[in-house]
Nucleic acid binder design. Structure first.
Lengths: 130, 130
DNA sequence: GCCTCATGTCATAAGATATAACATGAGGCG
DNA sequence: CGCCTCATGTTATATCTTATGACATGAGGC
């Protein structure tokens, strides 16, 4: 069933993350207080990171190297979160017949040369992946 | 450069491995005493596992479920190690001009109908890569 | 019943991590 | 130049996690 370490599985202690990111424990904890990451906690209150957390930390490192400060980086991720939230909702409710009819309707109008489609719900989807 | 957690990177503490394998610390340590795994150690003598170790532990679990005992499982891995060792050596020293000349020589003889090639150095290269 | 194997459980020591407080160097700025 | 803020380092104390070794135990084999 589950093969490898899924990226979202929170099982890594801070020591491991330190090695994987070359960040100090102080830095990692500070970024958490700034809301940049939210590692899970185990029964003993130890932080448990996922590979997604590790990736984000590496990104944060890059941003910092490029001169961003905590607040700016936080904004980047808040925006990202909003985008994904929308994206998620769009996937949540699958296309209904109603949607299809409206789409077709607009399609016809467009073909008819009336090109009436009011700038609707398609975000320009930032493809800059790194 | 290095993107994700390379499978051979030993950075996982035993607690993480317990979760990933659902094995008890006792079991993991016991398998180590039996020579089935050889996790690295950090400066503080803590075991450091790699994803390869995790995979092997999952395999061991399967073998045990199928009724194998430690000794038998050990034999499986020893044999596997020998195979890989040979494979490795074959890759180590690349083909020399000398080798090529001999190969050609045998080729000619073979064509000449004498088919005299004494089973020399070319392993049949097991391609069963699972 | 006696043995072995794989594992559980306990005790003790030492490494790892959490939190909080104080310290500091680099910039920004009146 | 003093004063502030930001990102991090450092230290101290408490608690969790892991290592080792010893003893315990249930399932099989004989």
């Amino acid at each position: 069933m589950e093969k490898q370490l899924q990226r979202s599985r929170a099982v890594l202690p801070i020591g491991t993350v330190m090695k994987l990111t070359t960040l100090s424990a102080r830095q990692i904890r500070y970024y958490e207080t700034q809301g940049l990451i939210k590692p899970a906690r185990n029964a003993g209150n130890r932080r448990q990171f996922s590979l997604i957390d590790v990736d984000r930390l590496l990104e944060i490192k890059d941003y910092l190297d490029e001169g961003f400060n905590m607040t700016e980086i936080k904004r980047v991720y808040e925006k990202q979160a909003k985008r994904q939230e929308k994206e998620h909702k769009d996937l949540e409710k699958p296309v209904t017949d109603e949607d299809v009819r409206h789409a077709l309707h607009n399609e016809f109008l467009s073909i008819a040369g009336l090109k009436h489609w009011h700038s609707s719900s398609f975000p320009s989807d930032d493809l800059s992946k790194k």
